[in-house]
Amino acid sequence: MSVHDFWTPFSLLPFLNALIIGISLASIWLIAALGLAIIYGTMGVINMAHGELIMLGAYTTYVFQSLVGVPFLICLPLAFFVVAAIGWVIERGVIRTLYTRPLDTLLATWGLSLILIQSVRLIFGGEPQYVGVPSWLNFQIDASFVHLSGLRLFIVLMAIILVTLTWYILYRTTLGIRVRAVMQDKEMAASFGIDANRVYSLTFAYGAGLAGAAGAMFGALKTLFPDMGSAYVVEAFLVVVVGGIGLIGSVFSSALLGELNSVFSYFTNDTFARFVLFTLVVVFLRFRPQGIISEGMGRR
């Protein structure tokens, strides 16, 4: 293997296409990380089962689409609500008792992810399943350097919609004010009459629901396996941790990581890009553990 096989020289148009792929990648990671960011930002809980919630969303979509015949666009909210309900149960059952022990939450949710993977494998079998892409998304944009499938464009749009929706809930509704109050100071919020436990349950359910919606889209993008969630979980964590506090942080960091990954992949290859990116993130966290955006708030 010579240097020339490994290193792709720079040329403008393919490079611009790599930037477009970067945006697509960034939107996928953002959608995957959004739920995690909300849960981590509000509750300080590292949810290792997040990838499996994504997987559940994908399988929910598969069930509704293939077995019931619901159109794809309706499957999205369905996946959201089904997985949100599962998330609510998880919070009540497991997470609730572990708020004072964040490292133990990490481990308990990992145990949970094993259970979820194996349950789905027992129900649906280990063979791959597919979510059909609706015909109105079956187009391809090919204009000079832009090569983008309709589905990927749809995911970019959905990322924008989900972020806007989450922003609206957090910053323009009473519930959002409560969530942010609990986020800043749980004790103080509780003394003002906010039911912090209820806020936690709802936040976890909402974060899980976002994972479900993400799963619906990833299911259309890729094949469904019971352990498909593990493909997203490390990237999602990195987006959250690099981003720091707030939605803006996650948006910035997913854009940054997605673009960097895409550019490194362009010059070398996918797996090597992953190595460089992860190493860079580790070095970045060493110098800025609070992430890109920090609002002077105490980190949990």
Partner: peptide, 12 residues
């Protein structure tokens, strides 16, 4: 995996 996951959650 179900058993392992359950043992683990139980232990934690």
């Amino acid at each position: 995996m179900l058993i392992l996951g359950a043992i683990f959650i139980g232990v934690v």
